[in-house]
Design a protein around this nucleic acid. Structure first.
Lengths: 245, 245
DNA sequence: AGGAGTAATTTTGCATTCATTTTTTGTACT
DNA sequence: AGTACAAAAAATGAATGCAAAATTACTCCT
């Protein structure tokens, strides 16, 4: 407990890892990345205190860069800063979640609209591939694989929008939701699978036709339905009931 | 306040002002607000250095809270942090601006969609009022008044969406664009006035009918047209030509 | 004069220190 | 025992200190 970090230097946590060589020229930059992951991955419970001193020891740094990272995470909406009372993991109310999902829906709807202007046939083919892959997972009841393919499809659409600003904003909001997923062991109900598959087919169809407004509508509705499923799931947590495709 | 500040002191800037009683429990919080305004209002030229030491003297604080605020502003996209070389005002390329406008268009389009679900008749009446007011400014060629009413209409739509998350994101992106407006003496060409007025009437019409998808489309197109006008304006800066309504 | 090289100065990034505030612990009192 | 109060400990927020990097100023040479 005491361990005033006398002189040892004892860096307890792994030096950097830096999985995938992301940005990080400065210490606070690296700490920001690592701390963000740490928070998103749910290592601290909802509403829990963010232990400044402890994290400093864990990362082997002083409080200054850590506190700078905390300010940024607060700006991103992952944590809350209480005056004189430190940082807490931001607890998202059901309403917060609904709002987040709606904003995500808006961003994806926008992404679809923009994608119609710029997407190449090759990109569409790639998305079709992902779609079939996802269908396979669906048939095999492989929820994890399904979920991953699904996510990659949505990311592909965002990428096809050719808008870095949008991509960044999307990633930010996705991170906030991901935290909930991690800590709440979030998974879509199986009942929604069939419906979601149909919606995805409609998405692909609109995309092939470059029907911007239509795709925008479909994507929004698709995410809206996800929202409903997610919120319901939160209300009655564990339900892993079977359901034939 | 405390009196330490050994010798110089020299608090040049006014104590707080805090126009409108916004958040600000901590020093870095207040500095963040003031510095954000300072940047958005264009007191530092595009790409210019953000003078740490000078700002500290101006605000009468030490570097720590200022640097914390800088980190947040960088996360918001207003400034850039160069490793070992301090902060610069983020210079937006034409492409950056296009992207920003598109994201704004997406957010407003979303706002319109959501507003249709929740807006009250009273709110619609209020927007109609603003619309007539705006029309008056249009007839009197009062660009400033027109612009303000226009902004209030769009803000009203965002408010009617009943989504704080969306509102916050909208405000952030609006701030980035506002900076450009300030420093580039940005103004829509008069030629677009007539067209914009027609679009606004269509917006009101769709809103009255609570036609979500339709409103979403109209708003996106409206902002898209704004974008085009703005980008053109940047290409050939000053053009204050007359144009009868 | 112009430019390469170098020393002085400033700036930056982070660690450390200090004054407050909050939280915890301990103690006395009803 | 339970509560009110007070003292101790810990935390937070901000200022200061310090080494490394970058910028500027200067010198010397051709």
């Amino acid at each position: 407990m005491k361990s005033t970090i006398p002189d040892t230097g004892v860096p307890i946590a792994p030096p950097a890892t830096n999985g995938g060589d992301r940005e990080a020229a400065s210490l606070h930059g690296e700490i920001l990345l690592r701390l963000r992951d740490y928070v998103v991955e749910g290592h601290i419970p909802d509403g829990g205190r963010v232990p400044e001193r402890q994290l400093c020891e864990m990362f082997g740094i002083s409080r200054t860069p850590l506190r700078e990272a905390l300010k940024v995470l607060a700006a991103e909406g992952l944590i809350e800063l209480l005056p004189n009372r430190g940082a807490r993991i931001r607890q998202l109310s059901q309403r917060d979640l609904e709002e987040l999902f709606d904003v995500m829906a808006g961003l994806e709807s926008l992404a679809g609209r923009l994608a119609c202007e710029a997407i190449t046939d090759e990109e569409i083919t790639a998305i079709e591939q992902l779609h079939y892959e996802m269908y396979g997972h669906y048939l095999h009841r492989d929820m994890h694989g399904y979920f991953q393919a699904n996510q990659r499809i949505h990311e592909s659409i965002v990428a096809a929008a050719r808008n870095e600003t949008l991509k960044t904003a999307y990633a930010n909001f996705a991170g906030r939701i991901r935290r909930v997923r991690y800590s709440a062991n979030f998974a879509r109900k199986r009942q929604r699978w069939a419906e979601a598959m149909r919606e995805h087919e409609a998405i692909l169809d609109a995309l092939r036709r470059r029907a911007a407004s239509e795709l925008s509508d479909i994507l929004f509705q698709h995410l809206r339905n996800k929202r409903t499923a997610a919120i319901e799931h939160l209300a009655e947590p564990e339900q892993d009931a079977p359901a034939a495709p």
